[in-house]
Design a binder for these strands. Structure first.
Length: 421
RNA sequence: GUGGAUAUGGUGAAGUGGUUAACACACCGGAUUGUGGCUCCGGCACGCGUGGGUUCGACCCCCACUAUCCACCCCA
């Protein structure tokens, strides 16, 4: 079917893209205020990068990647997320040699082969930030603040910030063992995937939605119980920063990140009224990711948010974004000869920075006026034979319904004056 | 990958086993000489997701497929 887009993808039409631009502009402005600069990495990378950067035990890697072999026999993959690429670019371009920390943001399409659903697509768009080189809890708090401020400016309500700490290589192993010891007596009663997680990633058993499994988790030791002094101090500091700027959060000790290189802070921002895919933002600290990918040990924090989910949230809360811009002047012509002069005048108006549109359909004057209305043109210029003979055109103020005859030589400056151009 | 629901023109949608598939909006055109937003008139599915089947006859019945939506899983 030639006229059908691929499953799980979207066409964004003009009425959509004007909203996207508004939100993207807001994000860019926000990043500027926070000192984050844009990075653009390839849409595809060597597959190996994601195996290491995302983790080869994750669902993303195991069953959701668009992987193919290029004509040169290399295995490449459409990026399922952007953090791995950002880390790769940080190392490859030696950004560590620049003043630290390195504060980057990205925005663009990501690809995951998933079953489409509300708020979930095969090509979707993420905005995210990464901060490399800063181990301070202030960096954690800074990116959370950025995300929170974004939603606040959009006017979204009922957001819930969930916060946790998953520890570090010092305290995690002990915790992991404690959790395994706690669960072991009931191991055979857990579901299949949880039994698998028990060995590989026992923390992720907290993610299981099976009520049976949850039952055996009651009273389990939490990551927070097991934090070492440094991690505890870090976590307390993050909370203190958030308290200081009045950002409310909920401690959720079941919020975990399964991969080994995640450390300390983990957070999610949830919004329950947009369907099952309620996470609008997720992130955390990953102090071991850079070295995992082959760089020097470098601390990092970051988050990503789903653009489509932002628009879902806006729609569900009835928030209207500013509409697209209107046309300043419509230039109507009565015949071919007038059309030439209309063309010239239209271009002249554009050179002065005005949005000017002329008829290219050869329509009747009446139809041209109707068309001008669709664009809500502020003014319409009428170029006709009679006026041309006199060296003039008609200038009509559409809202006022008033019209006057103006010398062709004066009309462009006159219109510019009305728009202060 | 699993489950549920749904598939009629650009959109929202009526519709009955049997001649020309409502209606509204949108779009296009027109309503005496070169002028809009209101009003009026007209046009706009050779076709009812695709492919089979049942039937004298199907958009309406059956089967398959596909797609969409929602949910599981997972995540943004």
């Amino acid at each position: 079917m030639l006229t059908k887009r691929p499953r799980g993808t979207n066409d964004f039409l003009p009425e959509d893209t004007c909203k996207w631009q508004y939100v993207e502009n807001l994000l860019r402005e926000l990043c500027h205020e926070f000192g984050y600069e844009e990075i653009r990495t390839p849409i595809f990378e060597e597959t190996e990068l994601f195996l290491r950067g995302v983790g080869d035990t994750t669902d993303i890697v195991q069953k959701e990647m668009y992987t193919f072999e290029d004509a040169g026999g290399r295995s490449v993959t459409l990026r399922p997320e952007n953090t791995a690429s950002a880390v790769r670019a940080y190392v490859e371009n030696k950004l560590a040699a620049r003043p630290q920390p390195t504060k980057l943001f990205y925005i663009g399409p990501m690809f995951r082969y998933e079953r489409p659903q509300a708020g979930r697509f095969r090509q979707f768009h993420q905005f995210g930030v990464e901060c490399f080189g800063a181990a301070s809890p202030a960096a954690d708090a800074e990116i959370i603040t950025l995300a929170w401020e974004f939603y606040r400016r959009l006017g979204l309500k009922n957001l819930e910030l969930n916060l946790n700490s998953v520890g570090c290589p010092e305290c995690r192993p002990a915790y992991r063992k404690a959790l395994q010891d706690f669960l072991r007596p009931n191991l055979d009663k857990l579901c299949d995937s949880c039994r698998e997680r028990f060995e590989k990633n026992p923390l992720r058993i907290f993610d299981c939605k099976n009520p049976e499994c949850q039952q055996y988790l009651a009273g389990a030791p939490t990551t927070l119980d097991a934090l070492c002094d440094d991690c505890r101090e870090h976590f307390e500091a993050v909370k203190k920063y958030l308290d200081a700027v009045g950002i409310p959060y909920k401690i959720n000790e079941r919020l975990v990140r399964g991969l080994d290189y995640y450390t300390n802070t983990a957070f999610e921002i949830l919004l329950s009224d947009i369907g099952a895919q309620s996470a609008v933002c997720g992130g955390g600290r990953y102090n071991r990711l850079v070295e995992e990918i082959g760089g020097k040990p470098t601390p990092g924090v970051g988050f990503a948010l789903g653009m489509e989910r932002v628009f879902n949230a806006l729609a569900s809360q009835g928030i209207e974004l500013p509409a697209g811009r209107k046309v300043d002047v419509f230039v109507a012509a009565l015949d071919a000869a007038a059309g030439e002069e209309a063309f010239r005048l239209t271009c002249e108006l554009r050179r002065q920075g005005l949005a000017a549109v002329q008829d290219v359909m050869g329509r009747s004057l009446k139809a041209q006026f109707k068309y001008a209305d669709k664009f809500a043109a502020a003014y319409t210029l009428i170029v006709g034979g009679d006026e041309l003979a006199r060296g003039t055109v008609q200038l009509r103020d559409m809202a006022a319904g008033e019209q006057s005859e103006v010398a062709i030589s004066d009309v462009v400056p006159l219109i510019c004056a009305k728009f202060h151009k």
